[in-house]
């Protein structure tokens, strides 16, 4: 016999004028290797087919299923119920617009973020199919990959003190993205151009250093290090800027 689990789940359907935000309670008996993916799918299919939540890969790769699990943002698919107490409270991620119940609109937020930071290789080079690829040191490729592992789940944004207070803060995810492109010699942007994107209170100087982002990142990205490095670089860049143009 498995444990009896009690789920308290936030419910609200903004498209239904009769709906008000509230909590619904569901009960399930725990089974072997039960994850929140297994549990929520069962609740929807066996108890309440209107329950909204987001899973896609259910393997910790795609970043769809971030939610607040007993007070902490995490990916639901890689959360085993046996690591939680018998009472489990699930809330949608804050900061992002609510679609319904546990489902939030991360797509719109991240597209805007990617546009804002210019999340692509800025280059004037074009493809010549007859020429071999530009060489790169393997260790540099691995360093870039280390930062590229971000899955845009939104946990760092939802847990961020600044992002919860000011809508225009770009968040650790965006700063990490900039750090990724600064590492990449294929991106021809100058330091000053990166500075224009992140050298403000909306960017690196808005960070209060609470570092919940580092604590909750399901991919264990080195966010604390990247924020520190960027802050230092941007500080120097600002000083140089003053002397050059002051």
């Amino acid at each position: 016999m498995g444990r009896k689990l009690k789920f308290n789940i936030f419910r609200y359907n903004p498209l239904d004028s009769n709906s008000v935000p509230h909590t619904d309670t569901f009960h399930l008996e725990e089974t072997d290797s039960m994850t929140l993916f297994i549990a929520l799918t069962r609740i929807r299919e066996e108890q309440d087919p209107s329950l909204q939540f987001d899973f896609c890969c259910r393997a910790g790769i795609c970043g769809s299923c971030a939610m607040v699990i007993n007070g902490r943002p995490d990916l639901a698919c890689k959360t085993l119920t046996k690591e939680l107490p018998t009472e489990i409270t699930l809330m949608p991620l804050p900061v992002f617009k609510l679609i319904g119940d546990l489902s939030v609109d991360t797509g719109t937020w991240f597209r805007a973020m990617n546009e804002k930071v210019g999340s692509w290789i800025h280059t004037d080079k074009t493809m010549d199919p007859n020429v071999e690829e530009e060489r790169m040191d393997n260790s540099l490729a691995e360093e870039i990959y280390e930062l590229e592992r971000c899955v845009e789940c939104g946990c760092c944004v939802a847990s961020c003190g600044t992002a919860n207070m000011r809508e225009d803060f770009i968040g650790a995810v965006a700063l990490n993205r900039i750090a990724r492109f600064m590492l990449d010699p294929r991106d021809q942007r100058k330091e000053r151009e990166y500075f224009e994107v992140i050298g403000t209170d909306e960017g690196i100087f808005g960070c209060m250093g609470l570092l919940a982002c580092e604590d909750v990142c399901p991919k264990d990205l080195p966010l604390q290090d990247q924020l520190g490095i960027l802050r230092r670089k941007m500080g120097w860049s600002a000083v140089k800027h003053l002397f050059r143009f002051g």
Binding site: T123, K125, M127, E133, M136, E142, D184, D187
Partner: peptide, 18 residues
Amino acid sequence: PTAVREMALWGIPWNRVV
């Protein structure tokens, strides 16, 4: 082969020969 190289130009951190 061209498609892979094109993705390198666009930013893929392909693992490289050591």
